[in-house]
Design a protein around this nucleic acid. Structure first.
Length: 480
RNA sequence: CGGGGCGUGGCUCAGCCUGGUAGAGCGCAGCGUUCGGGUCGCUGAGGUCGGAGGUUCGAAUCCUCUCGCCCCGACCA
């Protein structure tokens, strides 16, 4: 008889999410530091897996890692008009140090465009210095009014890419390349989360950007979550920080810069995409532990026989898969099954006396709870079997998530349809409204234009609000 | 930041109205038992009742302030 440690999604989706975070040992509230969380080992291990996958892709596309200070002179933020307006309300400021008031306060970085811009201006002289392709892994702070673990915390971890280019085309190409080859590729192939690639509207774009691209994912409650953003900053920061270069014709030009980021918020997205009422579900390619081995025995004799097989199989798996053996002997197997399901391990191997006799093991997949996901296989060829199964689970999670999104996405033609569709998922609609119209819909429907998908229709249609003919199709949704 | 709710062993909560010096279940420790889907029993440890003031002979309980958490809204990766 299972204990109800996890609130069901149907009962209270929000509480379900908090229960997963807590009971899967991902993180706890920092308690004494407002709006912050403490990452526990499992939560941090997931972030490390994300870092690994993204870092590989970032480097493979020609970028180098750097690191800039946590503190930024307050005046830097003011240099770019839109930027300061966007961030001023949520920055934390350091006013005292060394027992004295500082002559100029520092802000704790909410993002690093400004301080990096300052140094880019010093480092870039000639077109030969371009493109400059940097990335940094860092923590940033934004004093959010309402926080939720991973999804919105006052301090969060992320990577922020910052690049400078000679031409607008180069900057645009970089911005889109990151979106496709780094972000969408990682999120879809490693995290098994389907995303919609799109452009943000003027209203939703990053403060100070020329334009912002994003990948948007659908959570199990039908709401949208921005999983990553990539900004073409135009020459806005180059002008504010005087980032210039001399071109082939000996003319001084402003650079075109970009910035792009993915944060620990992705952990929240991961939870809300795949997990179920039994607990966390991790896609195999991301899971810090892919396979858990649970030995089963009832006396010393059985234990030594079973453990001999466990040892032998462990030796075979070593270096090929990420696995652990749960040899705690104060807990029953049933308890362990439930616990590892709660923690999201994709695949479980059970080895008991019967398996020792028959030369078999029992396998249970996390993506198919209960008997449906259980099978008995020969110990022979187990490594290959596991690898195949893990890839099957990976594919299945993506397929399920995509099917869910497809089912919860509808094309809408009228205001009424839009209104009801955003209650349950994504609404695709033609849009020719103004920024004020967009605000009005947000006020009335609590839904925003998540993005203008990069895949646009050939055929024109009529704007869902104004009735004007347009070829622009957008996605409306309620968002995290 | 506005409205509402709540802070009592690690967790979930009772006690508060009607002040008299703290309880339960789960978890934890030890021993035994059990072990193929959350074993069972016995013994035991663990709390200055979020914090600071105040009222009182006496405060978990009443009053004031403060910090934090949850829900709803506005703002946001």
């Amino acid at each position: 008889m299972p204990k109800d440690v996890i609130t069901t999604r149907a009962k209270d989706y929000n509480q379900w999410y908090l229960d997963i975070v807590q009971h899967a040992d991902l993180a706890v509230s920092a308690e004494v530091v407002r709006g912050c969380i403490v990452f526990r080992p499992t939560g941090w291990a997931i972030w490390e897996m994300m870092q690994r996958g993204l870092d590989e892709r970032i480097k493979a596309t020609g970028h180098e890692n750097v690191y800039f200070p946590l503190l930024i002179p307050e005046s830097f933020l003011r240099r770019e008009q839109e930027h300061v307006e966007g961030f001023a309300p949520e920055v934390a400021v350091v006013t005292h140090a060394g027992g004295e008031a500082l002559t100029e306060p520092y802000v704790i970085r909410p993002t690093s465009e400004t301080i990096i811009g300052y140094f880019f201006a010093k480092w870039i002289r000639s077109y030969r210095d371009l493109p400059l392709l940097y990335n940094q892994w860092a923590n940033v702070m934004r004093w959010e009014l309402r926080t939720r673990p991973f999804l919105r915390t006052a301090e969060f971890q992320w990577q922020e890419g910052h690049t400078a280019h000679a031409t607008q085309d180069d900057a645009e190409r970089e911005t889109l390349m990151i979106l496709h080859d780094v972000y969408a590729d990682f999120v879809e192939n490693v995290m098994a989360m389907p995303v919609i690639r799109g452009l943000k509207t003027e209203k939703e774009k990053f403060a100070g950007a020329l334009r912002s691209y994003c990948i948007e994912a659908m959570m199990q409650d039908g709401r949208a979550l921005q999983a990553g953003t990539s900004h073409n900053l135009g020459q806005n920061f180059a002008r504010a920080f005087d980032i210039t270069y001399t071109d082939q014709g000996n003319t001084v030009q402003h650079c075109w810069t970009t910035s792009w980021g993915i944060s620990t918020r992705l952990i929240g997205a991961l939870i809300m995409t795949h997990s179920d009422d039994e607990g966390l579900v991790l896609p195999p390619r991301l899971a810090p532990t892919q396979v858990i081995i649970v030995p089963i025995y009832k006396n010393d004799e059985e234990q030594s026989k079973v453990m001999a097989v466990v040892e032998r199989l462990s030796a075979e798996l070593k270096g090929k898969l990420r696995f652990k053996v749960d040899s705690r002997d104060n807990l029953t197997p049933g308890f362990k099954f439930n616990e590892w399901e709660l923690k999201g391990v994709p695949l479980r191997i059970e080895i008991g006396p019967k398996d020792v006799e028959k030369g078999s093991v029992a396998l249970a997949r996390r993506d198919m709870p209960g008997k449906a996901g259980k099978q008995f296989v020969n110990q022979e060829g187990l490594v290959e079997r596991l690898s195949t199964l893990l890839e099957e689970i990976q594919a299945n999670l993506y397929t399920k998530a995509l099917a869910f999104r497809t089912e919860r996405t509808r094309h809408v033609h009228t205001y009424e349809e839009l209104q009801s569709q955003v209650e349950i998922g994504f609404a695709r609609a033609y849009w020719a409204g103004s920024r004020a119209d967009e605000q009005r819909l947000q006020d009335e429907l609590k839904a925003t234009i998540r993005c203008i998908p990069l895949d646009q229709p050939e055929q024109p249609g009529r704007c869902v609000l104004t009735g004007k003919e347009t070829t622009q199709l957008v996605i409306f949704a309620r968002a995290y």
